[in-house]
Design a protein around this nucleic acid. Structure first.
Length: 226
DNA sequence: GGCCAGGACACCA
DNA sequence: TGGTGTCATGGC
């Protein structure tokens, strides 16, 4: 008997989860660091973003106050390893100044808004798009908000699931209606999709364009083998 | 030396 | 609404 969409997405999650194990995202010591990391990793390898985060920590800059006060030029040099450093410096300062203006350094209070209001507020900040806002809500505010990235759309499209278009909100609605709204499940699901795609890409470049679970002909570490 | 990475935005048709 | 160019470093 064929599985319905809800069961298919759950089945895929279980399959990936069993294969890759618990991911425990997001790697950060504070929620504010998590949010800054979300900007630094935009279209960037996490390793590079992490170097920029380390530089920020070394300069005691991981607080809204300090990032609000530092000049954009100085900040851009500190986060240089992350790439796109001038535009990211503007985005980080925009977030820090926005939070600082109402909450000073109490970022956790800022995150305690109702999640829909928080999302709308985050999206009003220049440089924070839907994916970054949802990452902050899921991993920072710890509210069940599914993150839709390019990997997710490509993987599910290739498997014949999800909307036929690339509209973010439609994809998010698809996951919200097929995956139980549990923060820990959404957290792991997103992390595991990334882990899966990175693992396939690393071992088998050919899989970079297919991302198929059962059609990875050249990779040794496919889900069909486990 | 080329390709890619845990996006967002401005601009144009 | 959808497609394209731009922003840039570091690892493989």
């Amino acid at each position: 008997m064929p599985l319905n969409q809800e069961n298919q997405t759950s089945a895929l999650f279980n399959k990936l989860s069993n294969h890759y194990g618990k991911q425990n995202w997001w790697p950060a010591t504070t929620k504010f660091e998590m949010a800054i990391g979300a900007i630094l990793t935009q279209s960037t390898n996490w390793n590079n973003a992490n170097k920029a985060l380390a530089n920020l920590a070394d300069n005691d800059l991981l607080s809204p106050t300090h990032l609000h006060q530092i000049s954009r030029d100085r900040l851009s040099q500190i986060i240089r390893p992350s790439g796109y450093y001038t535009i990211k410096a503007s985005r980080i300062k925009a977030l820090a100044s926005h939070v600082y203006s109402s909450y000073q350094d109490d970022f956790e209070s800022y995150l305690r808004q109702p999640k829909e209001a928080l999302r709308e507020d985050l999206l009003s900040i220049k440089g924070i798009g839907k994916e970054t806002a949802d990452a902050i809500i899921l991993y920072g505010a710890e509210e069940a908000m599914f993150i839709v990235d390019e990997y997710t759309k490509r993987l599910f499209s290739r498997l014949g699931h999800g909307p036929l278009n690339k509209v973010y909100d439609e994809w998010q609605d698809f996951f919200h209606s097929t995956v139980p709204k549990i923060t820990s499940v959404y957290s792991e699901y997103h992390a595991i999709i990334v882990a899966h795609c990175k693992a396939l890409c690393k071992k088998t470049p050919a899989c970079h364009t297919c991302f198929l679970i059962n059609e990875c002909k050249t990779g040794k570490e496919t889900l069909t083998s486990c």
